[in-house]
Design a protein around this nucleic acid. Structure first.
Length: 949
RNA sequence: GGGCGCUUAGCUCAGUUGGAAGAGCGUCUGGUUUGCAACCAGAAGGCCGGGGGUUCAAAUCCCCCAGUGUCCA
């Protein structure tokens, strides 16, 4: 069965009829009975440019967005929807995406799966979103944005529980009423296109709402889930109806603004002040004044219209695209040359893209993101670098942080965000420094790489361009322009190269996207009841009695070697590995069997104890947790929370946990920060952490459902990663740190004793790792350090206080002496080579020296240098040493009769067999080694007879 | 998470098929010169990131580790 037609009373009541689009074959509803296309086709041009479809909104920019948003949310509030505050732009409640890409993303995966109740129902929201897939089109197309607000009304229906709020009929009714009455849009301009939606295992009927050729909204009715036995088929996959039926709508706020403003591009509707400012800074008027006859608004309007109907494939060659546009503009009576077109559209595309990129960047940093070279941080860096590149191409001399401050003031109304405005400035200043450094290095690399290449060459080798882009961050266009600046003036970018680069990246990404399935160590647990975890009731309990529910043989490479069995009990005090905290060890005993627990893990709802011997189902066992280990793990875990809170207090609101590990020996906490940490930073954090131990008497542990936890504490709660269930355990250490955490923690922080931050290391750019020891481990660490120092002191024979000074003295003396030895060695070489001893012969004006020496090749080459460097004394020198397996070196004075007459390599090759070796080199300098030092004298004799001495 | 690159003098970096560790800047000394990156002569300054391997021979080739950069998801 395919999807049924969407046939609603609201259509009929408003005079709409159902037709099939001549171009796309999609079915659509229209009030204009003569219409043959659905509105969103290559034949439907924008009708609102210069002719707004929404009236009564004369303002522009932020004011326009605010008014539009308020009108939307107000409308749905009047229709009994609850207004919800927008979620952060960083999707920290999810582990599958970095950024919030749609309003429904706020409620995925747990609300949409039915596990967690929505914050309100029905609800309305305007959610800022970032999508970077079309980042290249931003500024060029007239309509693309990386950052936008998705206005929405969402409904989560549970027909199986008798909770049905509304469905298609009411949804479309609301939409139509708002469009025609609140915004006064002519019904003839609106088409409702039936276009089923599917994605991520769900599907449902959907309606696209097209106004004036622009898709203003999508209404999705998600009521199907993938099911191989399902009776509905969409695009080849089978689906069946699911218990939760969701209305997911999306109305593009910026598009509403554009339709109300009727400006040539969307950017002038939402960022007019910035566009004007950048035009002024870039001297854009100077460009257009050259051609007073060109009507800029008309050109841009036509460009947007053309972009709206042309489906431009990614990677189309720039020149080709330009020619298409020029031809099309000419058809429309606009005469423009290629030169004019480029001179106008290139800078404009940058002027338009900059405020868009700044908007995304400010929102991301404002949410506490730290730029990095991986994950979400990389996305921020990419936007920052794109912005900087475009700024430089425009020749604008304003720092990135000043651009951001302008943006925050003008387009965000000075909005207070999680990160301070100064913090954003600091981060962006650092980014700009890194960008400048990258450019400087890139220029150097290009010069080196091209140094052997003719300066008249017109194309750079593909491999060079790939390497510059992928390894050094220099985009192809930039590489060419740097090369031109460095003297390769004829250099141009091969047409189609950018497309090939993109293709190559896509291919690499595809290959990398292979997932390794994790095998389960223990299966067949489904029929057992969930294990009762006693460690949550009382973290200090270490002894317990329990019944064995299941015992099975196990074998796995990632378990300790002695493990033979996996045991499931009805209840346990053993904490399973999780949240970065390592598992408890201990024993399980009956009267007859005593087994060691060597690892504990949670598999589904069950806690599995991995033991070194078997137990029988039904056995009653006495469990005992290795308390020293557990206490140490708790010390470390609670310390990690305390240190995290202290770091946030001292370093700033962008400090977020990027990972953590708590073992018996030490703990690691990875935090997001834009700079390397100094020892002074660590000392301050350590000091505050130790104050918290003393000052906070009790930690608070509460269990909340997801909905309440989100509302009460926000998403900073999920430092340890996106939680999976509906129930959230919240650990609160006064106001110092509040986190969702399933680990075991002290009731009283004072039990930890003391915390020491050993050192910090860099995990990746933007992430700093703190190495922490606490409690007994802190004492052990101190003792160990003390021991090392004492040992060092004993070696020097001094008091430990004098160790640094003494070590320094020893080191300088050692260096001085090494230097002195070298000098003396050189002196010996001079003495040995200067004398007229019996190893020296003269033949036909060439001095021939055959001599045994001490030491290795290094010493010998020094002697050779002494012997053969003097051009007034042409010399052939043959040196041998018993070092190693025997060494031989042959050299002649360069540019002399010695080097004309004798070939060092040939001499070496003929005499080296006596020491059973091989070698080679240049005609004036050869060296080799062997394995028979006893043959050295034979080599010398062979040389003498070869040279007829 | 994956790919690629880099690590050599205090700094910025060269170093070709494995065969004698280099340049520029900076430092020091002497000379010349009373000037805004001055000139001349000379000197000092190197575990060529660490560890293993191949080889007669490794800055150079291979493997592991660390640090650092970059692109993509």
């Amino acid at each position: 069965m395919a999807m049924a037609p969407i046939d609603l009373a609201v259509f009929h009541d408003n005079g709409y009829i159902r037709k099939q689009c001549r171009v796309t074959d999609l079915w659509f509803w229209t009030a204009d009975h003569a219409r043959e296309t659905c509105g969103d086709t290559s034949e439907d041009e924008y009708t609102f440019i210069g002719n707004p479809l929404i009236s009564g909104y004369d303002m522009r920019g932020k004011e326009l967005k605010d008014a539009m948003r308020e009108a939307f949310l107000g409308f749905f509030e009047a229709k009994e929807h609850t207004r919800i505050d927008p979620y952060p732009i960083l999707a920290r409640w999810r582990d599958d995406i970095h950024l919030t890409i749609a309003s429904i993303a706020d409620f995925q995966p747990h609300v949409t799966s039915g596990m967690v109740e929505p914050p309100a129902n029905p609800l309305t929201i305007s959610q800022p979103c970032i999508r970077l897939t079309d980042v290249d089109a931003v500024g060029r197309s007239g309509r693309h944005l990386t950052t936008f607000e998705m206005m929405a009304h969402h409904v989560f229906n549970r027909p199986d529980e008798g909770r049905m709020y509304y469905w298609m009929e009411e949804c479309v009714q609301y939409c139509h009423e708002m469009f025609t009455q609140t915004f006064g849009i002519d019904a003839n301009e609106i088409t409702y296109v039936e276009n089923p939606w599917c994605g991520g295992g769900n599907a449902g009927p959907a309606v696209e709402v097209i106004v004036g050729g622009l898709e203003l909204a999508t209404l999705v009715f998600m009521n199907l889930e993938e099911d191989e036995n399902g009776d509905v088929e969409i695009k080849g996959d089978k689906y069946s109806e699911m218990p939760l039926q969701i209305i997911d709508t999306g109305y593009g706020l910026e598009r509403f603004c554009w339709a109300a403003a009727g400006t040539p591009t969307i950017y002038e509707a939402i960022y007019p002040e910035t566009v004007a400012w950048l035009k002024e800074l870039a001297g854009f008027d100077g460009i257009t004044k050259q051609w007073p006859d060109l009507d800029l608004d008309k050109i841009l309007g036509e460009m947007s219209r053309l972009n709206g109907i042309m489906n431009i494939e990614a990677g189309v060659d720039g020149q080709q695209l330009r020619n298409i546009f020029i031809a099309k503009l000419s058809e429309r009576g606009i005469a423009i040359t290629s030169e004019q077109f480029t001179a106008i559209t290139d800078p404009l595309a940058r002027i338009y893209a900059i405020p868009d990129h700044l908007h995304a960047l400010c929102n991301m940093l404002g949410d506490g993101l730290v730029p990095s070279n991986a994950k979400a941080g990389y996305l921020a860096r990419m936007l920052a670098r794109r912005t900087l590149r475009m700024r430089d191409e425009l020749g604008i001399d304003v720092s990135l942080s000043d651009l951001a401050h302008h943006h925050i003031e003008v387009n965000l109304g000075g909005k207070i965000m999680k990160q301070t405005h100064d913090g954003i400035g600091t981060i962006l200043d650092l980014e700009e420094e890194k960008y400048a450094e990258m450019l400087r290095k890139g220029e150097q690399v290009i010069k080196t790489m091209l140094s052997e290449v003719d300066s008249n060459i017109s194309e750079m080798a593909d491999e060079l361009l790939f390497s510059l882009n992928d390894s050094h961050g220099i985009a192809p266009e930039m590489a060419i322009s740097l090369a031109q600046k460095s003297g390769w003036e004829a250099m141009t970018l091969r047409t189609g190269f950018t497309a090939e680069l993109a293709e190559r990246h896509a291919k690499m990404a595809k290959e990398a996207a292979k997932e390794v399935a994790k095998s389960t160590i223990v299966s067949d647990l489904d029929n057992l009841p969930a294990t009762n975890s006693l460690y949550y009731d009382d973290v200090y309990q270490s002894q317990f009695d329990a019944s064995v529910l299941h015992c099975t043989e196990v074998q796995s490479d990632d378990l300790p070697a002695e493990v033979t069995h996996g045991v499931v009990l009805d209840r346990t005090c053993f904490y399973p590995e999780g949240g970065g905290q390592e598992a408890d060890f201990g024993t399980l005993s009956t009267d007859s069997v005593h087994c060691r627990v060597l690892d504990t893990r949670k598999i589904g709802e069950h806690i599995v104890h991995f033991t070194d011997s078997a137990l029988s189902n039904g056995d009653v066992v006495r469990g005992s947790v290795d308390w020293n280990r557990r206490k140490q793990l708790m010390d470390h875990h609670t310390s990690v929370h305390i240190v995290g809170g202290a770091a946030r207090r001292i370093l700033g609101p962008h400090i977020y946990q990027a990972g953590a590990n708590k073992s018996e020996e030490s703990a690691r906490l990875d935090i997001t920060h834009y700079n390397r940490l100094s020892r002074q930073d660590l000392d301050e954090i350590e000091k505050m952490a130790n104050q918290v131990i003393v000052q906070v008497n009790k930690t608070e542990k509460t269990i909340l459902n997801r909905k309440d936890a989100d509302r009460k504490h926000g998403f900073d709660l999920y430092q340890g990663g996106a939680p999976k269930g509906d129930t959230i355990r919240v650990l609160r250490i006064s106001d110092h740190d509040i986190q969702a955490c399933g680990g075991t923690h002290h009731d009283e922080p004072g039990q930890i004793g003391s915390i020491r931050i050993v050192r910090s290391t860099a995990v990746q750019d933007g992430v700093e790792r703190l190495h922490i020891v606490a409690g007994q481990a802190a004492l052990d660490y101190a003792r160990e350090q003390d021991g090392l120092l004492r040992q060092t002191g004993e070696v020097f024979g001094v008091n430990i206080n004098d160790v640094p000074r003494t070590a320094e003295r020893f080191f300088t003396e050692w260096k001085d002496q090494r230097k002195r030895i070298e000098q003396l060695e050189a002196e010996i070489v001079r003495l040995r080579t200067s004398g007229g001893d019996d190893s020296s012969f003269t033949k036909d004006g060439v001095r021939i020296v055959i001599m045994e020496s001490d030491g290795g090749l290094k010493n010998m080459s020094k002697m050779l240098k002494e012997l053969t460097l003097d051009e007034t004394k042409p010399t052939l020198a043959i040196l041998g040493s018993r070092d190693g397996g025997g060494k031989l070196m042959v050299a002649t004075t360069e540019n002399s009769i010695a080097s004309e007459r004798y070939n060092s390599v040939e001499i070496l090759k003929s005499i080296i067999p006596h020491i059973s070796g091989g070698g080679g080199g240049r005609p004036t300098f050869a060296q080799g080694g062997g394995s028979n030092p006893e043959g050295l004298q034979d080599s010398f004799e062979a040389a003498k007879s070869l040279l007829e001495l």
